[in-house]
Structure formats: structure tokens, C-alpha cells
Design a protein around this nucleic acid. Structure first.
Lengths: 333, 333
DNA sequence: CCAGCAAAGTAAACCGCTTTACATAACGAA
DNA sequence: TTCGTTATGTAAAGCGGTTTACTTTGCTGG
């Protein structure tokens, strides 16, 4: 592998000249430039990024940290981040934490170790304070999709409250009054906000919320399944369910199918996220779409600003959109 | 950020001593060890990986290269690789090529740039020779899931032929004789092999393969849709379809639903891959499961062997498994 | 009493690049 | 002729580790 010095020697100049030339820090006459270019081509020189990084202290790389690789929502988000980062010449190193606190901590430390210039954190579990404390000591982090309370960094979220409100209103408008809601861990911002949106819609229609129909657990298929079974087991059944994540909705769908409850005939259902499979399931799922591409794009933009010290704290809320498919029917009392 | 020298000074020894101690290249008396440990703790020293890598030329990192982030199959594969790599203390940098030749080339060059010690390549388009030529000049690459003809590196594939054979036999055993097959780009090894399996099963049952029912295109939902429409438009319809990827199967399913062809009543369907959504669609898809976790694990193991120079070329075939769900029915002539 | 050896380190070069401060030559102006 | 500029570079010190080849010291055995 050719080095900078090899090129310099080949071109008959000093390594300094080559380095500065390549970084546009010097004006050289045409002749010299040609010789250097020729040497680079001849030797197939490619700068050693490691050395460059060590020397400059900049890595030109960022890392989206996602809880689950394999979760389509986070992957779409990460892909969006990647696309935008690439446009700006930044390398992207994806890392997944599998919802493991220790791995989240690792990711942050990796930033500290200069692996990357910045982090875009996504998480799906409530923080016990560990992350907040760690993040407080680091620069160049932006939070995406979910909050970590107590840290003051740029944040990119969606209108969770409005989304859940719209979803619930759709059900109410279809004549439903007995509506259950299934959501993730009570500690998460998104859970609280979506729940708030649900309550506001119910309140607005003058319907009392039955607290035994408010089921909080994990944002997982398994919990969706379990929650739906619990609802079916209760003496009075709701006629509609708001699932605060498409993962939950899928679980619900499975449980209902097993119980031979027809969606939307016997039970209406609306999800949240609009994951890629939402339109593939049976029936195609009515759900609240998050603007994934825009979220990723914006998160990177914020991070870049942070890296270049042109920004401190900001929080952005992106709008969501109700996507009506086939999982909601009119309630025929 | 504390450096090795800081630690050395604090402990009253030379940087060399600290370095060698940390890398287990020297035996030091208890007292010295304690002083170094104390200094490390006091200064919260963390080695600078960049410097370490520059110095040693080893990165202790690998990179799975996948065509599409967002494709659950590749993501599961990547996750499996990651899990195994982590067990061995290797960092994992995921990169996606979006099926773009230029980005595949980039990924290989990154290896050359010493970003990573090795690559696990996945691809989903036939190579025009570019990749083969590039790979021939590089060490430490292993191919996963799909072949790139003409390169001699370790490879981890599945029994494509057997899988398609089993799937087709299932249909034949259910009484079907008019069977169509939909697959990806004809240049891909997996396509050829799955097609071969299909033909062997048909031949074994003494059924002639109708070549106008052999539809090759892309491994995508769109092509699945298109191919299914083509089959429906033909005067004689098959009674069953072998889709050589679950992505294709999903597209087929959509087209059939639109045409109000009931699966499996009017048309039986079997997929390939067993992607996570396969059991979520309607009807749950009968498909051929690839042992994703084992594939990822093995690919990393091979790569590690390669890095440590303990292996040259090998090719492993992992068995697949037919997962019977609800998309196949008996043919009632 | 001293050669010889093990124990406990260390000096300095190196990995490949960047950057600051300085050098040399040529040229025009005073 | 001499001086100041400008154009065209260069030497050398980092960045933070690793590693090879030594050195020093103390002990042991003959």
C-alpha cells in the first residue's frame, strides 16, 4: 500500500507538499500538480484514514445507535440517516444495542474513544438515569424518536399526541365508544404522549376511559398478543383497539385471528408507525405514519450543526399522518 | 482525555511498560501493577483505538456489507454476524450498498483502507466482473448467501436446490401439476439452483415444465406482483406457484388478492427465506426457511479464520427447512 | 569475589498523516 | 545594487499508541 511519502518521492516533492495539496491548503503550479496527480495514479495511492484521523482528531464518521437491528422502523430511520450522512461525505457506522443498557453505554463510550464524531441515539426503553448521566458528559449527540429525560441535546421527535388523537378520533367517528389502548413501557415519552392523545380524543367526545382497557407493556409483538388476549378474556369486550405501534398491532392481529375475532368486522384496530408490513397484513392496517425519511434527514442535519458548533439545544416535532386502510369498520351497535 | 504517557507518568514508569503491561507482554511485580492500575483508574484512561490501530495495523473490526438495509432477510443475517463478532470482541460496522455497484466497490476499498480487518459480502445482483476482479486482489473477504462467480474465498450458502425441490414436491404431493415458478435475476447462483431444484422435482414426478411459466426478474415485491399478473393473464392458469423469495411471494399475494384469486383455495403458493413477516400475511405463508443465525455465525467464524491465516478456501452449504403454514391446499381437479 | 543470568524495566523508532513555522529563489521596485 | 515580496515549497514536531533491542540491578552459584 502506497503512502504519502511514496507519492512525494515519486513526484519529487516533499510529503508536506502532497498533503497540503490534497487538502487544498496550498497553491501549486500546474507542473507540480500534474506530477503529484500522476504519482497518485501510478501508485494507486489512497490515504490511510486511520492516520488522518489520528492526526486531525476528526473522524468524519457518525453512528446511529438503534435498539434493534431487524426492527423495520429503526432500520428505515437508520437508512434515512445514512443517506443524508453520505450526501455530506460522512461515513456511517451502524450499531445495535439489542435493547441492552450495557451496549448503549458502549456506544456512547465509542464516541468518547474518537471512533466517530457524533451519535444519533434511538432507544426503546426508559432510562434509569445511566444514559442521561453519561450523555451529560458528552457532546455531539442527538436524540431521535424517543426522549431520554434530563439531557439537553438536540432532539427530533414526532407529534405523538396528535397522531394518537387522530387515530382515536377515527374510531370514534366510526361510531366506536368502547375503545381499548395498548402501548409500550409507561416510562417512555412516546407512550405518555400517545396515551395523552388518546385520552384527549376520548374526553373530547365525552367518553370515559376505562382504565382496565389501558394496557402498558413493551413495544413488541408478544405484548400485543398478550394484551389482546387479556382484552378478549374480559367480560365486556371493546369494539376497537388503538395499538400504539405496528408491532403491537401485529401481535393483536394474531391473537384476534386465533380467537376467530374478525378484523374489522368484530373488532376495529389502528396502529402506529406505518412499518413496511402494515399494508401487507390481513387486513391492511390503518395506522399513523411517521415521516421516517425526514426524521433521519433532520437528525443528521442537527448532528452536523452540533459538530460544527453552530447549534446548541433544539427540539423539533415532525407531523404524522393518518393512513387509512382496512382495519377499521363502522361500529354497528 | 488521558493518554498512555499520562498514565505512565502518574505511575512512575515508562509508557512502554504500561503498554506492554496492558497487552500482557510483560510480567510486572505486584507493586508496579497496582500503581499502573491505580493511575488508569484515577485518570479514567481509555486507549485511543485509532492510535492503536494505526500502530498495529489491526482494527479488530469487520463489516457486513448488505445490499439493502431494510430488507429483513439481510438484516437478520447481519444481526447474526454482529452477535457472533461481538462474542469475539470484534467491532461491527454495517454498511449498505442499496444494490449499487459503486457502493459495493466502496465497501471493498474501505477494507483496503484499513477501516476493517475483513468483509462479509452479501449481494443480490449478478456481478459483471467488477466485483470479482476487485475481490481477487483482496484478502479477508467471505461471501454470504449469494455467490460472486470467479472469486475463491470462503463461502457460506444454503442448500438452494434442495429447498426448491422440497417446496415443489410439497405442491406435487398436494396434487398440483400445473406449477409456475417465479424467481430473481437469472445470473444469480441462488436463482439457478432453486430453479434446478424445481426442475428436478417436476422431472421426478414426470411433469413437463412449461417454460412460459418460468418467470425470472428481480427478487422484489414489484416483480412478484408483475409476474403474478402475467400468470393470471395467460389463458391457462397454473394451480400453484413457487416463489423463490418471500419478497416475491408477497408481491404475488397482493396481485392475487387484487384479482380476487383466493389463496390457497384457487391458487397455492410457497415462498423461500421465511422472512419475519411470512407468518403474518394472509394466509400465513408456507415457505423454505434459511438458517439465518447459523449462516451469520458461520460466516464470521470463517472470516476470523481467514484473518488469522488458518484457512483458505471453503464452501459450506447449510440445510434449509420447509415450514408448512396455510398457503398450500390440495388440488381438487 | 565475580561471572552470569533472571527480573524489571526503558529508549527510540515507527505507523501515515497534518500543520506550524521557516527557507529559498526569483522578480520587481527603489 | 539591494531590499521586500511573492511564489513555491520544506523540516520537524506532533497525534497516541506498539515493539524491538537494549540496559540496569540484584542475586546466585562456583
Amino acid at each position: 500500500m502506497a503512502t504519502l511519502s511514496d507519492v512525494a518521492e515519486e513526484a519529487g516533492v516533499s510529503p508536506t507538499a502532497v498533503s497540503r495539496y490534497l487538502n487544498n491548503r496550498i497553491e501549486l503550479p500546474q507542473g507540480t500538480r500534474d506530477r503529484i496527480d500522476a504519482a497518485i495514479a501510478k501508485l494507486d495511492y489512497r490515504p490511510n484514514l486511520l492516520a488522518k484521523r489520528l492526526s486531525t482528531g476528526k473522524t468524519e464518521a457518525i453512528s446511529p445507535v438503534t435498539p434493534e437491528i431487524g426492527n423495520p422502523f429503526f432500520m428505515e430511520l437508520a437508512a434515512a440517516v445514512e443517506a443524508e450522512a453520505e450526501r455530506h461525505g460522512y461515513a456511517v457506522y451502524m450499531s445495535s444495542t439489542r435493547g441492552d443498557r450495557a451496549r448503549e453505554v458502549d456506544a456512547i463510550k465509542r464516541l468518547h474513544d474518537q471512533h466517530v464524531d457524533g451519535l444519533i441515539m434511538m432507544t426503546n426503553q426508559p432510562d434509569d438515569g445511566t444514559l442521561a448521566e453519561l450523555l451529560a458528559r458528552h457532546d455531539n449527540v442527538v436524540l431521535l424518536d424517543e426522549d431520554i429525560p434530563g439531557v439537553s441535546v438536540p432532539r427530533v421527535f414526532v407529534e405523538n399526541e396528535q397522531g394518537a388523537h387522530a387515530a382515536t378520533q377515527l374510531l370514534i367517528a366510526a361510531g366506536h365508544r368502547d375503545i381499548a389502548v395498548i402501548s409500550g413501557p409507561g416510562g417512555l415519552m412516546s407512550v405518555k404522549e400517545r396515551l395523552a392523545g388518546f385520552r384527549r380524543a376520548m374526553g373530547g367526545a365525552g367518553i370515559a376511559v376505562r382504565e382496565d382497557w389501558v394496557l402498558l407493556g413493551q413495544y413488541s409483538r408478544e405484548f400485543g398478543h398478550e394484551a389482546a388476549e387479556r382484552l378478549l378474556a374480559s367480560r365486556e369486550r371493546p369494539s376497537a383497539i388503538v395499538a400504539c405501534s405496528d408491532y403491537l398491532a401485529i401481535g393483536v392481529l394474531q391473537a384476534l385471528r386465533q380467537a376467530e375475532v374478525v378484523v374489522p368486522g368484530d373488532m376495529s384496530l389502528v396502529g402506529f408507525d406505518d412499518m413496511p408490513f402494515a399494508e401487507l397484513v390481513d387486513p391492511p392496517l390503518t395506522t399513523v405514519r411517521q415521516p421516517v425519511a425526514e426524521m433521519g434527514r433532520l437528525a443528521f442535519t442537527r448532528l452536523l450543526a452540533l459538530i460544527n458548533k453552530t447549534e446548541t439545544e433544539t427540539m423539533t416535532r415532525l407531523p404524522v399522518e393518518l393512513v387509512v386502510r382496512k382495519s377499521v369498520a363502522r361500529f354497528e351497535g
